[in-house]
Design a protein around this nucleic acid. Sequence first.
DNA 1: GGAGCTTGAATTGTATACGATTTTAGGATA
DNA 2: TATCCTAAAATCGTATACAATTCAAGCTCC
Lengths: 248, 248
Amino acid sequence: MFQVMTSLAPHPPHRPRAAAPVHARLRDRIVRGRLPPGTRVTEAGIAEDLGVSRTPVREAMHRLVRDGLLVPVDGHGGGRTRLAVAPMDPATLDQLYRIAGVLEGLAGRAAAALPAGRRATLARRLQGAERAFRATAARRPLDYDRLFERHDAFHRTLVDATAGAELKAQLDVIRPRVDRYEWYYAPLVGPDFTATYREHAAIIQAVRSGTPETIERAVRANWVRGAARMVRALAAAGRQRSPASASS
Amino acid sequence: MFQVMTSLAPHPPHRPRAAAPVHARLRDRIVRGRLPPGTRVTEAGIAEDLGVSRTPVREAMHRLVRDGLLVPVDGHGGGRTRLAVAPMDPATLDQLYRIAGVLEGLAGRAAAALPAGRRATLARRLQGAERAFRATAARRPLDYDRLFERHDAFHRTLVDATAGAELKAQLDVIRPRVDRYEWYYAPLVGPDFTATYREHAAIIQAVRSGTPETIERAVRANWVRGAARMVRALAAAGRQRSPASASS
DNA sequence: GGAGCTTGAATTGTATACGATTTTAGGATA
DNA sequence: TATCCTAAAATCGTATACAATTCAAGCTCC
C-alpha cells in the first residue's frame, strides 16, 4: 500500500501512459549498459523499481522483446517466457549494421528525386550536422555521450528528409539495437574518426549531386565499413584482454 | 460468469497463451480482408468475440499496431488511442515493397557466399518452388489462396537459406503488411504471371552462378517491378470503376 | 553419503475491478 | 431550425487478484 506513486506526479490518482515512460527508461538502461547483456529481468522487479504496477511494465517488456533488447531465455519447454537482456556478439553487430545500411541506403536514394532546392538544403544541413560532429570529436576530453548524439543527428538529418513513414518505422525497429552497439563500442573505435569523416563527406557529396546509386552506395559503405571497424576494434580489445585473463 | 470458455478447450480453467492465438486470428482477419481498412476495433469487442478477457486482446492489439495493421485514429489530442484497421494506398504499397526488396536482396547476397554444394541445393529448391508456383498459376479456375502460398514459399525458400536471425526478424515485421497487399490485389494483377516467371527465373539463375550484386539486383527488381505491376493494375481498376461511380 | 521426491517460493499469464477522459446523444433555448 | 449545453455511454489505461507452472532447496530413504 505504500509503494504507490513513489516516483512520478505529486498526487494524481491516475497516471496516464505509464507504459511509454517505462519502456523508454528500460530501453535506455539497456542501451547505455546499465543493464548488461544476460541480466535477468522480471516484471515484478521492474514494477517495484519504477513504482508502477506490473501491467505497464509487462507491456513495456513485450515491446522490448520486439525491439530485440530482451530475449526469452532458458529451454523450460512449454512454460512461460523468462526474459533477459539480449547478448551482444560481433556476428549480430554485422547483421544489424548491414540491415541499417540497406534501409538507410534506400532512404538516401530518394534524395536524388528531391527538387533541386530541397536537395541543396539537405546537403547543407548534412554539412552542418557533420561540422558539429567533427567539432565534438575534436574536443578533449572526448564526450562520447555528446558524440553519440551528433552522430545520430547526422543520420537522422538524412532519414528525416528522405524516408517515408514506413521506412522510418522500419528503421525505428533496429535503431535501439544499433544504438546499443554504438554506445558500448564507440570508445573502442575512437578517438580517431577520420575514416568516418571521409565516408560522411562522400555521402554529402553524393546527396549534393550524385545518382540514386551513388548515394545508396555511399550510405551503405558507411554502415558496412563502420561495422567492420567496430568488429576489428572489438577483436583487438579481446586480444589485449586475452593474455591478461590467462595470467590471472 | 457465463462467457468463460465459450470457445476453446473443453474445460481447462487455465488457457495458456491466449494472446498469441488472438494476435494470429486478428492478423489473418485483417490480411485476408475480413476486417476492411478503416474498421474500428475495440478491446472489449474483440474480447467478447473471441471469448477471452481484455488482457490478451490488448497485448495482441499492441502487437498489431507494431505490425502496422492497426493504426491510432482520430485527433482527440491528449486522450487514449482508438484503433482502426490501417488504410491501404499505392504510396504505402510502393514503400513496403521497396523495403522488402532491399531486405530480401541483402539476404540473397549471402547465397553467393554459400559453399558450392549448398548453393546448388538452394538453386534446386528454388527451382522446385517455382515449378509448384507455375503449376498452381496455370490451373483453372485460379486458386488465389493456394497461389499466395506458393509465391510465399518461393521467397521463403530463399530467405530461410540465406538470412540470419536478425534479418529474418526484420522481414517478419513487414511481412504481414506485404501479405495484405498481396492478398487484396493479386487477383487484379493476374491471371497472367509471365513477368513474375521471368523475374523468378533471373533470381534462380543468379543464385546458381551470379555475384552478390547480381543476386541482389534480381531480387530487388522482382519486388520493385511487382509493386509497379500492382500499382498499375490498381490504377486500371480505379479508372474502370471511376466512370461507373460518376454515373450512379 | 548420495539420489530421488516433495514442498514451497518465484514468476508469468489471464481475469476483473476501477478511474478518467472522450464521444455522443438528447434536450433546452434563442 | 440550428446551436449550445448537459449527461450518460463507451472505451482505454492501470491496479490487483488469482491460477498454474517451473525452479530450487530441503528432507527422507536407501
